[in-house]
Amino acid sequence: MTRERMVDARLHLLSRQVLDADGEPVRAVDDLELVGPGGQPARAGAEVRVGAILVGPVLFVRLFGGAVPVSRQPRIAWEDVGHVGTAIELTVPSDRLDADWVEHWLRDHVVGRVPGGRHDPEADG
């Protein structure tokens, strides 16, 4: 029989740092998406699970109000979560995640064009 551990969203999950498989910080948990069985929309009273960690551009929403459309929120599938402790650790490297697409786009299109921008300081040892 598998054991279960009780966690509370605000106490243990929200705003926690998300680390990828290499221990690199990815994002912080902004919200959790709830889904029903088979990926159906969550219904009151029926079985509901966490489907994904949402890591959205919440700063603008907090400053100016409103809400980011769900389709526009970058997400990390809950299946990729390996350990929940002081941080939430994933079993996949961050390059495989869509959540960092803004950073990857800036790296390829802006930072990479700056002279010296493709230099990897960690490769120098």
């Binding site: 009780m6 969203a9 929940v84």
Partner: peptide, 26 residues
């Protein structure tokens, strides 16, 4: 979170301060 909780007869019972999950330990 922060949703208003009503009883079956519509009386206010309070607000949601947290959401509890059971994490499966594999």
């Amino acid at each position: 979170l922060d949703a208003q909780v009503l009883g079956p007869d519509g009386t206010t019972l309070g607000v949601v301060v947290d959401v509890r999950f059971a994490l499966e330990v594999v």
